[in-house]
Design a protein around this nucleic acid. Structure first.
Lengths: 120, 120
DNA sequence: GTAGAATCTGACATCAGTGTCAAGTTCAAG
DNA sequence: CTTGAACTTGACACTGATGTCAGATTCTAC
């Protein structure tokens, strides 16, 4: 598929897809004329990238992480370096803290909402 | 207390504290010479503001929300508008989704970490 | 009164992902 | 062919909280 369809199927803008490629997160074949051609797998990959972005990982870290993931196609995957494992563990712990903080904030909001709803 | 101490006690930079005031999130008395003077309660308020920022709320929304919160001092608090309740409910739902997404990302990271750790 | 620390305002920089626009090229269908 | 939609690269703008710096002022302690 070409970039427009991938954008439609993932809900990610064409601009962002080109950015992902520039950052080494996404690869594409090119048509004879130079237009990007994506495999079906790209859909899942883009969604995964978005999830990692949403979790607060930066593109550089994602670029290191992606090749170490189990490939659904069974393709060869790189071996994670001890350094990367350390980094990812730190990220995971950061996410844990973030989830805990969000739960706190959620409780705060809920309290305001409940109080306000009673007053209405 | 003055701004330096508040910064120390909250872990928030002086720059940010002035920004919060500019955005209407934080109030301060002023010394005769014009320096900010904070009540002890400011500490809790700043921490709360940080939590809400961390939850992804923007300063404008926080500025609307804060006056509607139950005041620990029992001070008069404004009544939340139906519009605000709607907005806050949307924020809460957004936070719920964010927590769920983070849990997904956490699982992804955990998988990579576990796999990598086995290989080492 | 004076030195040095703390604070003031205002301005500009930063981050990283994304929006947007321009000018040119390629693709698909008539 | 031709036409219009889709795509290309490159550049610049934006967001919004925060960092940082400069020059002036205030506070505190001696």
């Amino acid at each position: 598929m070409r970039i427009g369809e991938l954008a439609r199927r993932t809900g990610v803008s064409e601009r962002s897809l080109r950015y992902y490629e520039q950052q080494g997160l996404l690869v594409s074949d090119r048509s004879p004329g130079g237009q990007r051609e994506y495999a079906d797998r790209a859909v899942d990959r883009v969604i995964l990238i978005q999830e990692l972005f949403a979790a607060g990982l930066h593109s550089k870290k994602i670029a290191e992480l992606l090749p170490c993931m189990r490939d659904p196609d069974g393709g060869p995957n790189e071996r994670a370096t001890p350094q990367l494992v350390t980094d990812l563990t730190a990220e995971r712990d950061r996410i844990d803290r973030m989830i805990a903080d969000l739960a706190t904030s959620r409780a705060v909001l809920d309290d305001v909402i409940t109080t306000a709803a009673q007053e209405l």
